[in-house]
């Protein structure tokens, strides 16, 4: 198992960590992703936005190999579209799915030991970012609150050395205080590892994302700096169907 460690010498700042070229996803009769192409730069947070059902989750799942796809997907210049999910993940992509999907019958420690058999909850990164989990090591993950489950889902991914994280709606259904906590963790992680983030919460996008990719009906319709989109209320409404101000008030 090779664990690619990105170094400044190998990866020039301009080179994207992930590239999607003409990615299509067809399921049954429906064509869910149609010719999706975009780059994820090797630093900071790239937010993947769009209305409900435009294919954001499917895009993440196609990258990780959980959705049947065609087209080219490059991780640090290497084609990964023919690899199995487990190999893609071991190759350095961490995936935090929508709805957390922690193993409810397993303890917090066991959830983490799946990824890091030797250290589990004792890994330094857990103590640094998720101190609450250490005290709950023996508790079944299914009995944790939504916010704590999200922490488990993030922690178990961070136990690996990743070159990219895919994070799908990490604040969905969380109380405002927890949203802030999750955002803090993501911002901290993004200082060392690039993140491709699917998120509905625009204030949070404004806070931590550097750039945005907007999908509509299974295709990319906008690419640009996060600040530009957020500053343009008309564009936001046109692309996302929401008013920034109303979201901001929520």
């Amino acid at each position: 198992m090779t664990e690619p460690i990105p170094s400044a010498a190998e990866t020039s700042p301009a080179a994207p960590v992930l590239t999607l070229e003409d990615v299509h996803v067809r399921y049954g009769g429906s064509h869910i992703l149609q010719d999706v192409s975009f780059d994820v730069p090797a630093t900071g947070v790239t937010a993947l936005l769009g209305r409900n059902g435009v294919g954001k989750t499917t895009t993440l799942r196609s990258i990780i190999g959980l959705a049947p796809r065609s087209g080219r997907i490059l991780l640090e210049g290497n084609e990964i579209q023919d690899r199995t999910t487990a190999r893609i993940v071991r190759g350095g992509i961490g995936y935090v799915p929508e709805d957390r999907e922690v193993f409810g019958g397993l303890t917090v420690d066991e959830n983490l030991r799946l990824v890091d058999p030797d250290r589990g909850v004792d890994a330094p990164v857990v103590a640094r970012l998720f101190p609450d989990l250490v005290s709950r090591r023996g508790q079944r993950a299914g009995t944790l609150s939504g916010g704590e489950q999200q922490m488990v889902a993030l922690a178990r991914v961070l136990l690996r050395d990743n070159v990219l994280l895919l994070v799908d709606e990490p604040t969905k259904g969380l109380a405002p205080k927890l949203v802030t906590e999750v955002a803090d963790v993501l911002a901290e992680v993004a200082r060392s590892t690039p993140i491709l983030l699917v998120e509905q919460n625009l204030p949070l996008v404004r806070r931590i994302a550097d750039r945005v990719v907007v999908l509509d009906a299974g295709a990319v319709v906008h690419r640009g700096a996060a600040a530009d989109l957020v500053a343009d209320a008309d564009l936001t409404r046109e692309l996302l169907g929401v008013s920034m101000r109303r979201e901001g008030a929520a």
Binding site: I64, L66, T84, T85, A86, V89, R90, Y95, P97, E101, F103, G104, G105, L106, E110, N111, R113, L114, V115, R156, V157, R160
Partner: peptide, 20 residues
């Protein structure tokens, strides 16, 4: 451990990089 996790959600086991 992998079996117990897989019984719950085998897709997620794979998505954690484990050869299920």
């Amino acid at each position: 451990l992998v079996i117990r996790a897989g019984v719950e959600n085998r897709t997620m086991v794979e998505a954690l990089g484990i050869n299920v």
